[in-house]
């Protein structure tokens, strides 16, 4: 139980997927302008990462290992994630228009989010059992959402600030991201 909690907390704060692994930078910069967009993206990423992790983990141990096809993990996971996003988008479109309104526009962007593939591959390379895999699958996107939300709050305040002309837009955002990464690196000694 302690290990599961450690994996969960580490994935959120210490090995944060954005600030320490530099993955998922495209939505980090592109969809962090407003807090509502950031939360929508974070929720969609959480849903896809948890679902894709369960699928890929099961497929690896139930199909790839018995057939001795472990070397096929990368191509398998890419296809599974892409298919999962397609089917998820289709079902949401058909059965829950309200949910599609809030999540649908983010789903195609998640297909190319490398954080999803990172979690699927990391679950295997770290040799997690099922519950540890679930802890990681929930922790990583929660860390992603947390950073995206904090960053969107900072950017909303930056829009109202008097930023020097050469720094307006992405430059000042990247300076803030660097300071955030420094601040979060201070949590490395927590566990």
């Amino acid at each position: 139980m302690q290990t599961i909690f450690t994996i969960f907390l580490t994935a959120i704060l210490i090995n944060n997927v954005i600030l320490s692994k530099f993955l998922g930078m495209c939505p980090f910069l592109g969809v962090s302008r407003k807090t509502s967009s950031a939360l929508g993206m974070g929720f969609a990423v959480t849903f896809v990462i948890v679902g894709a992790s369960i699928f890929t983990y099961s497929l690896y141990y139930l199909v790839l290992v018995p057939l001795h096809l472990e070397y096929m993990d990368l191509i398998t996971f890419i296809l599974v994630i892409a298919s999962f996003v397609q089917f998820t988008e289709m079902f949401i479109k058909k059965f829950s228009p309200a949910l599609y309104k809030s999540l649908g526009i983010y789903l195609p962007l998640i297909t190319t989010n490398c954080a999803v593939l990172y979690v699927a591959l990391d679950n295997i390379s770290s040799k997690y059992d099922f519950w540890q895999m679930l802890a990681s699958a929930f922790g990583v996107p929660l860390g992603f959402t947390l950073i995206l939300y904090i960053f969107s709050c900072i950017r909303e305040r930056l829009d109202e600030s008097n930023v020097p002309l050469p720094f307006i837009g992405n430059p000042i955002a990247l300076v803030c991201a660097a300071i955030m990464a420094l601040a979060f690196s201070g949590l490395a000694g927590l566990i």
């Binding site: 930078m25 495209c26 910069l29 592109g30 969809v31 302008r33 407003k34 967009s37 479109k93 228009p97 599609y100 309104k101 649908g104 526009i105 983010y106 962007l109 837009g169 992405n170």
Partner: peptide
Amino acid sequence: PLPKECQDLKLECEGC
């Protein structure tokens, strides 16, 4: 088909 109320949804991405 897209739901009727979602026809003109656009992602507010600034663009990298």
